[in-house]
Amino acid sequence: MTITSAFPRSPALPLLVLLFSSSLWGLSWWPLKKFVEVGLGGPVLSMLVYGPVGLALAAYLWRERTAWRSQAGLLIALALVGGWANTSFVNALMQGDVVRVMFLFYLSPVWSVLGGWLFLKERVSARRKLAVAVALAGLWLVLGGAQAFSTALSVADVLALTAGLAFAGNNVIARAGQAIPIGSKTAAVFLGCGVLSGVWVLGLGTPVPDVSLPVSLAVLAYGFGWMLLATATWQFGVTHMESGRAGVVMLAELLVAVLTATWWGGEALSALEWVGGALIACAALIEATDTGAPTPPTPIVKKETP
């Protein structure tokens, strides 16, 4: 049974599913901050959240090995790049201001445009060039404008920027790996995140703290429930919706994160940072509504020898 046959062919369904997914991603900062409050945070938490899910999906990944064997190199690259995107994003949210982290992460459309141009030889329209320029202007303001050169970036800033860069790389690799099933791509990213977080923990020599049974169950629920559900619904939404429309809907993630962090988390930004964040959001909207956006490359189907 295909994915499309398992759901009613309602045009509103992908929209609702993607809005739900974007809301989950936009709210993902809240449980992360709660885990930090009980002494569980950093790469240890991302390892415990993503690692078990990745191990559980490893059997599924192996079962589809015939499909992705011809592009195994791209699958490994996807695990590393996509894994870092998730690892650095989660750790940025735990260490930094949620609103600032989200603005810096949402530069990913800029990196996607540049990556598609450099590696996939995609045409960059004037509209997309405008989006890049607006986003870079927003980045300049978020980082402090003229003070950007005199003020060092925080660890959370670096993690957020590299998360957006890695997420864009994840998208470029995913578009190139047309022979790799969506399920295998998802499993690879979870495995990569768990492995990279584990390497980070070992490299820093960070001890895994003793946590109570309720906290352990909450971590597992967050990984297998919240994060896996957010990822699966996102994959369904973007698979069954035009890329431009999906990009606009996914801006709900930024909106949900900014509103909840300011209302519930009591966060505040300077006027300069708000203007910069607004420019970044506008750039993402320009990119998402670009009617000249390239279509994914045509899958190469290999003929099986008798």
Rank of each mutant, 00 (worst) to 15 (best):
G194T: 06
S243T: 14
V249N: 11
W25C: 15
L16C: 13
G96W: 00
G51I: 10
M47W: 07
P214I: 02
A67C: 09
L45W: 03
G247M: 03
V99L: 12
W68E: 13
V201Q: 00
A58E: 04
T295P: 11
E122Y: 00
H240F: 14
W68L: 06
L15M: 09
I182P: 01
F119W: 12
M1W: 05
G277S: 01
T233Q: 04
A168R: 08
V201A: 01
Q235I: 11
W62Y: 11
E122S: 00
E287F: 01
Q147M: 01
G223T: 11
K302N: 04
R100K: 15
S5Y: 09
Q178L: 03
P109R: 10
E122V: 00
G164W: 14
V238L: 02
K33I: 09
M102Y: 07
N86I: 12
Y106C: 09
T233V: 11
S150M: 03
F119L: 09
T151R: 13
P207R: 05
L217M: 06
L27K: 14
P181C: 11
G83T: 08
N91F: 00
V142T: 07
A135L: 01
L255K: 07
S21A: 15
G225S: 13
A281D: 12
A188N: 05
D97P: 05
M250L: 11
L120H: 05
L220A: 14
